[in-house]
């Protein structure tokens, strides 16, 4: 894709010859697209985080993950419009609300299906349809929008590099959430229990760990994180009952490429985000998405377990 430099104009310019049309990409545009790639990576990571935890721990393929994201966005909308809660408080509120919904779904449905992965697929798909229709009945199918404080709506420019402040906020949230999850998993008692149950559920139970309880809270944690993702995305995008469908594909791509571990998802989202941004700069957004899919398929062909496979038995 990168052509040869035909002129010795400037060592910082890259000439690209693509199908007859020539495009001059300055290093500034390239740097901007790298920074944008970080933002896209942040979005992928935040979207995939909840799914990583649920899949990595319990091996549950949660098809309703996109709908948890959607519920997070609607929670923020409802709190803003009916209660008047400021945006920054809505984010942890979305975590709690969607986490509680996830907890309820786990206790009533998912816990009976841990040994049957195909049935969880179907059951969670059903849950997603119920959630979409339920949201439609309560809120209507017209789009809503989430208000963000005006300083988040602006743009930060340093030198020639620019990025929207809200996108920077998403990157910071991605880092914060990653740190939070790492802290929970590796520095708390609950984290030890999760990791034990992930490695071997029966042996962990024989050590006195209530593995059913651990699974429930882990599912709730994953759902809550999806809720936070929704709180962020509702401001970037519009809030519709079907908004989750766009994010569930991204989340699954990240989790499958990453292998199910936290670090795997982080690396995968970084790679996909950067590549998508760079490809979109060189060609166009549509072709970039196509290329990403092709690359992921090729990658999985050679490494089907993903980048870093999560430890433990797959149930």
């Amino acid at each position: 894709m990168a052509g040869s430099s035909r002129h010795h104009r400037s060592h910082t310019d890259i000439f690209v010859n693509l199908g007859g049309s020539e495009m001059d990409i300055s290093s500034l545009a390239f740097a901007n697209s790298l920074i944008l790639g970080l933002s896209i990576a942040g979005i992928f990571f935040v979207a995939a985080l909840g799914l990583t935890i649920i899949y990595g721990t319990a091996g549950v393929i949660n098809m309703a993950h996109g709908e948890f994201i959607m519920l997070g966005a609607y929670t923020v909308y409802a709190l803003q419009n009916f209660v008047g809660v400021p945006y920054f408080l809505c984010i942890p509120a979305a975590f709690v609300v969607v986490g509680a919904i996830g907890f309820a779904i786990e206790k009533s449905l998912i816990r009976y299906l841990y040994d049957r992965p195909l049935d969880t697929l179907l059951a969670t798909w059903g849950v997603s349809l119920v959630l979409i229709q339920g949201t439609r009945l309560i809120f209507g199918s017209d789009p809503k929008y989430v208000e963000i404080p005006s300083f988040l709506s602006s743009n930060l420019e340093i030198g020639g590099l620019s990025l929207g402040v809200f996108r920077i906020f998403i990157i910071l949230m991605a880092l914060l959430l990653a740190a939070l999850v790492w802290f929970i998993f590796f520095k708390t008692d609950f984290g030890i229990k999760i990791r034990a149950v992930t490695q071997n559920r029966e042996i962990a139970a024989s050590f006195g760990i209530n593995s059913g309880q651990v699974y429930s809270f882990t599912f709730a944690l994953g759902a809550g994180l999806a809720g936070v993702a929704g709180a962020l995305f509702g401001a970037l995008n519009i809030v519709l009952p079907t908004m989750g469908m766009g994010y569930v594909v991204e989340a699954f791509l990240t989790v499958v490429t990453g292998g199910g571990a936290l670090m795997g998802s982080a690396i995968a989202s970084l790679a996909i985000g950067e590549l998508q941004s760079i490809f979109a700069l060189i060609t166009n957004s549509t072709f970039a998405q196509f290329l990403i899919f092709v690359l992921i398929v090729v990658f999985l062909r050679f490494r089907p377990q993903g980048l870093i496979s999560a430890s433990g038995k797959r149930r």
Partner: peptide, 20 residues
Amino acid sequence: EEYIPLGDSEFGPVLNKIRE
């Protein structure tokens, strides 16, 4: 001239190109 998949909502790369 840029085309975005119908229903897609990621306009970051396009806006970067516009800024350029």
